[in-house]
């Protein structure tokens, strides 16, 4: 098709969608819509993961981000009953400044990312690294310490969130 492979088409479409949806996240006036756009962005990213044969990661990505994190966001937004009317808006000037700053940053980054053209992703058949078994082996051998210590992180977050969240007992 037009000289591109199916993969390239999929890549292109997913990327386009991801960027568009990400832009929608930023520019949508309604916070709930923002959340939904972000969820969809995450789906696109998960699609990319699948494209790179990182199946496990893709599904974990969905479970963690779409299934847990974004639900929390939605939860909070709904509890606070935020909608378009309550949405504060920055002045156009600030927005333009933010846009220009971001654009410049993008320009700098993209400019400096030259030189990677020659690096091609390795072929699909050989790549089994995204499978659960391989990931598990690496995670529990090489990355055992980070894995264990991440429990401290989660514990801390848990304790912290509960401490902040619970009502003050008088």
């Amino acid at each position: 098709m037009l000289g591109y492979t199916i993969t390239q088409w999929i890549f292109g479409i997913l990327s386009f969608l991801a960027i568009m949806l990400a832009l929608m996240v930023v520019f949508s006036r309604n916070p709930v819509n923002s959340v939904l756009y972000l969820v969809m962005t995450f789906f696109c990213i998960a699609g990319h993961y699948l494209l790179m044969n990182a199946q496990f990661l893709a599904i974990v990505h969905i479970v963690v981000y779409a299934g847990a994190i974004m639900v929390l966001f939605l939860f909070v937004i709904m509890l606070m009953n935020l909608n378009e009317d309550t949405e504060p808006q920055r002045t156009w000037l600030t927005k333009i400044i933010a846009g220009v700053a971001g654009g410049m940053l993008l320009f700098v980054l993209v400019g400096s990312l030259k030189g990677a053209e020659q690096m091609q992703l390795s072929s699909y058949g050989a790549s089994q690294i995204g499978l659960v078994k391989n990931l598990g082996k690496v995670l529990f051998s090489e990355f055992l310490f980070p894995f264990e210590i991440a429990s401290i992180l989660l514990l801390a977050a848990l304790v912290g969130a509960i401490m902040i969240g619970k009502k003050e007992i008088k």
């Binding site: 993969t7 991801a18 044969n53 993008l106 990312l113 053209e117 091609q120 992703l121 699909y124």
Partner: peptide, 17 residues
Amino acid sequence: MINGISINYYLLLSTVL
């Protein structure tokens, strides 16, 4: 399956995001 996509595109995509 992923053949034919340069890492550059991914770099670009993630940078843009």
